[in-house]
Simulated scan of single mutants.
Amino acid sequence: MISIEEALTGKVPQAALSYCTQLWVEAPFDFKLTRARSSKLGDYRYDPKTANHSVTVNHDLNPYQFLITYVHEVAHRVVHQPKSRQKPHGIEWKRTFQQLMLPLLRPEVFPDDILRALAKHMKNPKASTAADPKLLQAVSNYDLTKSDGPTLRNLLPGQEFVFRKRAFRKIKTNRTRAVCLDLSNQRRYLIPILVEVEQVR
Rank of each mutant, 00 (worst) to 15 (best):
E26D: 13
D132C: 01
D143L: 01
T176H: 14
D47M: 03
P103R: 02
H121K: 00
L23G: 07
F161S: 05
P28K: 12
V78Q: 03
E5T: 15
S39T: 15
E196F: 00
K165A: 15
R77Q: 07
L183Q: 10
R177V: 13
K146M: 02
K123C: 09
S18Y: 02
N174Q: 15
T151V: 06
Y142P: 04
F168Q: 09
N185A: 03
K123V: 14
P111A: 03
L102A: 15
V195Y: 02
P88E: 10
R95E: 15
F161M: 12
Y142C: 00
E73N: 08
F29C: 09
A75H: 08
F168G: 05
F31D: 01
I4G: 10
T151Q: 09
R166L: 11
M1S: 14
H80W: 13
K126V: 05
T129V: 13
D112R: 02
D43K: 01
E26A: 04
I2W: 14
Q14I: 04
N58T: 15
T151K: 00
K83D: 12
V109W: 06
S184E: 09
P157G: 11
A178F: 11
H89S: 12
A75R: 06
D182I: 08
A178C: 14
L144W: 02
V78R: 11
P150D: 05
Y46F: 15
Y44E: 07
V79P: 04
K49Y: 12
I191R: 09
G158I: 10
P28R: 03
A15R: 00
A178T: 11
A75Y: 10
P192H: 03
Y64T: 00
A15G: 01
V200I: 11
E108T: 12
P48Y: 09
C20L: 02
F97W: 08
E198W: 06
K123H: 09
L41A: 14
L115I: 12
P63G: 02
V179Y: 14
V78D: 10
K87L: 13
M1V: 10
F110Q: 05
N185L: 03
E160M: 06
P28M: 06
E73L: 07
G90N: 11
L17Y: 01
E5Q: 13
S39N: 15
G158N: 06
R169N: 11
P107A: 05
W24I: 08
Y64G: 02
P13M: 09
I91F: 10
N185I: 05
W24R: 02
Y142E: 00
S84D: 12
K87E: 12
N141H: 11
E73K: 03
H121N: 03
S54M: 13
K94I: 14
Y70P: 04
A138N: 05
R45M: 06
A130S: 10
T129D: 01
G10M: 07
G149K: 04
R169F: 12
